[in-house]
Amino acid sequence: MAVPARRPAAPNRIVPAEVLGWGVDAEPDNDPTWPMRDRAGDPGPHWPRPALQRTEVKILQSIEYARRPAVFGTAVPPRGLSGVVRRAAFRWSESSWLHWLLLMGADRVNVIEGVADDLAKARIPNIPAEMGARAEWAHNRGGLFRKIAVAGAAAAVIAAAIRRRRV
C-alpha cells in the first residue's frame, strides 16, 4: 500500500524547546517494566503483615485470596435480596463472568431496595434533584425541555397502547 502523502505541518505545531520544563524528566533507560523490577527490599510473598482489622459486618472476599487482606472498608454491608445475590457471586472467581454479572444484577436490585428504604422512612426521593435537574435548568434548558418532551411522548405512546389493549 502506498504511504499516504504527508500532511502539511499542522498550524498548531509546537516547538518543544520552547515548552516550559521540556525534557527535565527524560530518561533514556526508562524500562517498560519500571518499577516492577525494582526488587530492592522486596519481601516476596511473605511480608510482615499489618495488624488485622476486626469487624462485625460481613466482608465478601475473592476466592482468589489465600488470606483476607489486613484492612478493608465497611461502607455498606450486603443485605436484602441484593445481599443474597452478592454473596452468591463470591462463589466464583474474579475470572468468571458470572461473578461480575451477578454483582451487576445485585446493583440493579439494590437501586429498587434504595427507593423502598426511602419510602419506608417516609421519604419520597426527589429523583429530578438527585439527577441534577437544577444544573440542567441552569445550563441546558433546551435539553431539559427536549428530555421532558421525549419522556412525555413515550408515556403517551405507552398509555395509548395500554388503552387500545383494554378496548
Partner: peptide, 21 residues
Amino acid sequence: QCHFCRQGLYGNCHEANPAAT
C-alpha cells in the same frame, strides 16, 4: 510493606481489598 508496595506499586497493594485481587 507487601510484595507490591515494596516494589513501588502502591496502586496494587495486596492488603487493602478483600473483594478483588
